[in-house]
Design a protein around this nucleic acid. Sequence first.
DNA 1: ACCTGAACACCGTTCAAGT
DNA 2: ACCTGAACACCGTTCAAGT
Lengths: 260, 260
Amino acid sequence: MATRTRRSERRRQVLTRERIIETAVELLDTTGADALTVRALTSRLATGPGAIYWHIGNMSELLEAATDAVVATALAPRSAEPAEPAGAGEAAATPQDEIRAAALGLFDAVTRHPWLAAQLAVQFTRNPWGPVTLRIFESIGRPVRALGVPRSEWFAVASTLVHYLLGATTQTSQNAAPLSAADRAAFLDTASRAWQELDPDDYPFVRAIAEQMRGHDDREQFLTGVDLVLTGITTLHPPTAPGSPAPAPERLAQKGRPAR
Amino acid sequence: MATRTRRSERRRQVLTRERIIETAVELLDTTGADALTVRALTSRLATGPGAIYWHIGNMSELLEAATDAVVATALAPRSAEPAEPAGAGEAAATPQDEIRAAALGLFDAVTRHPWLAAQLAVQFTRNPWGPVTLRIFESIGRPVRALGVPRSEWFAVASTLVHYLLGATTQTSQNAAPLSAADRAAFLDTASRAWQELDPDDYPFVRAIAEQMRGHDDREQFLTGVDLVLTGITTLHPPTAPGSPAPAPERLAQKGRPAR
DNA sequence: ACCTGAACACCGTTCAAGT
DNA sequence: ACCTGAACACCGTTCAAGT
């Protein structure tokens, strides 16, 4: 490829933390998570390991920074169609729409960057309140507030949404490059078949859904899940709009927990 | 410690796949995820790497098997109090209770095995329909069925619950050994303080919940989230019991999705 | 202050050779 | 069939030495 011209042009730039992170993301996108090594970085940046370690503390810090950078742009409100007349027919987005937009931003980022799902999971478990989590929390929390959820429930409600998002986006991953439509269909087909051959005593439910999982669309199902959680939120914490009947959430209240 | 007696007694046993998995879990529990290496295994089993690789394909297969083993016992319905007269005062568990029980089984397993959270995440992203996911799906899916959710929604509803569970349990991890109450309080305190010093323009929401996050209880909040999702499920798919008014889920229906 | 590059202390995995 | 143990091809990270 155009490696030679690229590399020499590169070398003219100074080595900065930002450029290392940027290169890491490129490497992750093009060659996959396993191929991001210090040696790969040094050769792409035409430098030595010492130079890398001068700017970044260690490999996992770099991974965190790369993940944070990608998540930041994924959650940034897109300016969408700048050609469209601003503020014309565009009704103000509802809090639900904002939550869906943030959720989709994350979802689409994971499909664009196949390595992201695993990294989100790693970041989330290794450093539960690190920059990545905080960023997601903020994007989800603001609309939760606007939803009219009582202040005492902000943390719990936002957590629930964030946890759902992270679970859902991390499962929606292609390890390697994104699959073609045909490959995806083939994959789902074999999986579905395998499920149908599971032991009926051990896996009755999985067998029963084998058929419908074959035809499912990840993105659509993701949104269905978001809406389900949103329904839970607005049912438990109905907006205090005038005329709203405020249905009492009897059965699933806090107190009704299992004894043991 | 009693390493010598233990090791020689060990050596008398034959090396089997099961024993390797069992030893891997011990190693993970006692020395942490980073310390589970082939070399550590060989020394603990008093054998060589070749012997290990005769029984298991590679390291990540072993990790998957170890995770699956722990998850299996975590989800197995506990016989609870065997001293108690069976079937006496015990009313049949509701589907909700069964879901909560499975969820708590997973949650408690993650706190008992600090390495489990990360491994669940890895398993879930690397092999989205592997044995671990399937097992969790089955435990959650059965009660979902019993909840009266229409068949066409089984997959979507079970997925939503599983995704929430996985997101929530993977964040609830202590990297190393479980923290003492005092350490936990100190940790939450510093985190809370750090949140309050974030930029008010960038992180208004996180700042606003800093105080309540300091006092939160992971397990309680986890259950709150489960109940929130359950509320969403029963609201969208009310059980068709006679006398149930079956409220129409107008606002958050499938069709009301954002255009872009 | 910033970078070089050899060297260190590990990894997972393989494989000829044994029994 | 099952196990041994040396060897291979990698890792991330450090650090004296340069500019």
